[in-house]
Amino acid sequence: MSKLFTDDEQETIVELMNVGVGRAANSLSRLVQDEVLLSVPKIDFVQLASAEKTFEELLPKALAGVTQAFEGFINGKAALIFPEERSLELVRILVGDELSASEISELEQDTLAELGNILLNSCLASLANILKREINTSLPEAYSGDYKKMLQLLCNQEDSLIMLVKIDFSLRQRDLQGYLAFIIDLHSAAGFHAALQDYLSDLLDQ
């Protein structure tokens, strides 16, 4: 399964995601006024069936977050995921303490959607820029539920090849962890492969 991409290509994907997530972390850091600690991106190539097991092992039971579809040289969906019980606290950090509890609750979905919009676009745009391609992103959609519901939102085709790029992040001064996941559709793997090949050829020609 993982041989869909060569070792060089896979290494390139990790490096590009590192750059993209670095940009996203910088954006998040500015929004929450705190240092964002990042894990090295971990890439797994899995089928839908095994993705459930992976998600169950990796993610908190109750999730809140944002999904955003993308299409262009690669098609798929990206997700920003938080433990659901931390969601309101995150909103409070972002919109400030001066709002009442009911106002914060009212803004929860909209705030998460906007946060996802900023972070997921940072990663995807950085990827597109480096590979000299273009990606169109849909409007962000906030959700809450368990990992199964999230997988249903992310994978709408049975034959989806899931390239799960998982990055853990946390804030240095606050107890908040989150995850970014990118699901690449099997049918667009050829476009991704071509873009990576062009990028690697350019590097080798220099």
């Binding site: 940009r23 954006s27 919009n117 900023i118 676009n121 940072s122 745009a125 950085s126 597109a128 820029n129 273009e134 990606i135 992103t137």
Partner: peptide
């Protein structure tokens, strides 16, 4: 004003 910071945009 956008989060989509692609060169194309």
């Amino acid at each position: 004003v956008t989060a989509n910071i692609q060169d194309a945009i």
